[in-house]
Write a protein that binds this DNA or RNA. Structure first.
Ligand SMILES: [Mn+2]
Ligand SMILES: [Mn+2]
Ligand SMILES: [Zn+2]
Ligand SMILES: [Zn+2]
Lengths: 131, 131
DNA sequence: GAGCGCCGTGAGAATGGTTCTCGGTAGGAT
DNA sequence: ATCCTACCGAGAACCATTCTCACGGCGCTC
């Protein structure tokens, strides 16, 4: 039986309040900044659990795991800003079908896929061209 | 001016001889096993260079960077066995177009994408169902 | 509400892949 | 052959993540 602790709730809330993907360390720093006394290990544990239960999406960028709040039960992918982490949820139905087909064609079973699109969001694009 | 050292050549050869993706550590162990005295740091440097120059593909799995020899100049993706690392190069033209389009639709510039398909290769599938 | 069992927590240590440091070595232009 | 300097290697440093373990509080029972 899973327990309800203020720590888990704080992590869930902070993640929901965050725009785009964040690292465990950044989320921990943010929580500490607001006076919360959650431990770093707890933030890692909570984020891993949330991701495992489908309440958060995760991706790895430059050796760091990044997380984002996510409505559970929906398989989707992300369009992510390389500069600020802002993310847009996108559906990729044609890609889903393509992935299944290409796996089957080569006799691979239990197919999986990793599909992420990166770029510079409108704001960061504007900032980059202004510079 | 880039120098030709036997170490770089040894790494390039070992990578070319390897089926599927390998980690820097595994490649280093393999080289040491054949009597070569390359250093671990050199293997890391050589693999990073090869990947940067397009002579190798890389992906990150469970916190480890994996590399594979690759014909330069061709953008493609991989179908990778989760169990043994065997990889098949696949073209993903429909996905390329989809990625560009989805980025443009949301005003994202300089689009990039990460597309990997994982599964169990025929051999590992057979082994898994036999068990 | 009080007692109890035991899961979750947190500080710090450990881990492990990767990168850095720096004295030494060797590629290659002249 | 000489010189300049990029490259090498061993080990230390780095750093995100995980582990350890004593402690505290959540939730079930009465
Ligand atoms: Mn998908
Ligand atoms: Mn592509
Ligand atoms: Zn941005
Ligand atoms: Zn396999």
């Amino acid at each position: 039986m899973k327990r309800n602790t203020w720590q888990r709730e704080a992590v869930r809330d902070a993640l929901g309040r965050t725009e785009g993907f964040v690292s465990a360390q950044a989320l921990h720093a943010s929580l500490r900044g607001t006076g919360s006394e959650v431990g770093l290990a707890t933030v890692y544990r909570a984020l891993a659990d949330l991701a495992h239960e489908g309440e958060a999406d995760s991706l790895v960028q430059e050796g760091e795991s990044l997380y984002r709040a996510c409505t559970p039960g929906s398989h989707h992918h992300h369009l992510i800003c390389r500069n600020c982490g802002t993310a847009v949820e996108i559906s990729a139905d044609p890609v889903e079908a393509w992935a299944r087909q290409v796996a089957a064609e080569h006799g691979f079973t239990e197919p999986n896929h990793v599909v992420d699109v990166f770029g510079l969001c409108p704001e960061c694009s504007a900032a980059a061209s202004a510079r």
